[in-house]
């Protein structure tokens, strides 16, 4: 556990060395926040009523929590593990008395931490300052929201970890990564809230892990999901976190058996 915590801290410090990148990310997130808020408010105005449980303040909350979590949750994926498999550096990970999946998860939690603090929260505060935004309606929503963010980070990491591990079998996984990004970007509820989807698409989304990466924490924090529904939103996330971590373990083991470290 202490090892895990130290690896989390290392991830935090690693990513905090790139301050300019954080600032740039924050700026981008804010600009896109304005654009998205304007578009969704216009859609809401033309409908003349709340859509899918979203009125104006919850829609604003949806937009800005989304922007805040965009850098925190690794929606677009990462290439580190894939690159290490390709170059053979993954061998070094197997020389350590820790499980590589757990070590990378710890590092990613650290990365998520610095991105939430250094990039997400400032963007959120800026949005809250300029728009009329709904805050979590109760202490329960705040706490559950925090847990839900943590789970979202874990789910996104675990899914991407599995994708990265495909490099054991495929020389180039760029196509798969791209497919994951496009599908995930849509189904996680980044562009539009999942409840706004047509029925068929909402069904697909709800059977996928993607809403667990963004829509669920946002719903809790925007106050659209309250009471007993909070437990089921978090429960679904727990299910996906456990399932994808388990899948990662299976794939990691298969990959290790297959490992033919290239070069030298």
């Amino acid at each position: 556990m202490k090892t895990f915590w130290l690896l989390v801290r290392a991830g935090f410090r690693r990513h905090s060395t790139y301050r300019l990148a954080l600032l740039a990310g924050m700026t981008t997130n804010s600009v896109f926040g304005f654009i998205r808020a304007s578009i969704l408010l216009a859609a809401l105005a033309s409908a003349g009523t709340a859509i899918g449980g979203y009125d104006a303040p919850t829609t604003i909350a949806f937009v800005w929590w989304g922007q805040a979590l965009l850098g925190t949750v690794n929606l677009w994926g990462f290439a580190e593990v894939k690159d290490r498999v390709r170059t053979g550096d993954i061998a070094v990970d197997f020389l350590r008395p820790v499980d590589p999946q757990i070590a990378y998860l710890a590092g990613d939690l650290g990365r998520a931490g610095i991105n939430l603090v250094g990039r997400g929260v400032p963007a959120l505060l800026l949005g809250a300052l300029l728009f009329d935004m709904a805050w979590p309606p109760s202490a329960v929503s705040w706490v559950a929201g925090a847990v839900s963010i943590l789970l979202a980070v874990v789910v996104a990491f675990s899914g991407n970890f599995v994708i990265n591990l495909l490099a054991f079998w495929l020389v180039e996984i760029r196509g798969i990564t791209l497919l994951w990004m496009i599908t995930g970007g849509l189904l996680c509820g980044l562009y539009l809230p999942v409840p706004w989807f047509p029925d068929w698409l909402r069904t697909i989304a709800n059977w996928s892990p993607f809403p667990s990466m963004l829509q669920n924490p946002i719903d809790i924090l925007a106050g659209r999901v309250v009471g007993d529904d909070i437990a089921s939103a978090v429960g679904v996330q727990v299910f996906w976190a456990v399932a994808l971590l388990a899948l990662g373990q299976v794939v990691l083991r298969a990959g290790r058996r297959r490992l033919e470290v290239q070069g030298g």
Partner: peptide, 27 residues
């Protein structure tokens, strides 16, 4: 183990931190 052509250190961190992390990894 040292593989001359691979690194076990954390590229972005001060050297000191790599030792601290490895110490924790080795309990």
């Amino acid at each position: 183990v040292v593989f001359g052509q691979r690194s076990q250190l954390w590229w972005d961190l001060p050297l000191r931190d790599s030792f601290a992390i490895l110490g924790a990894i080795h309990r």
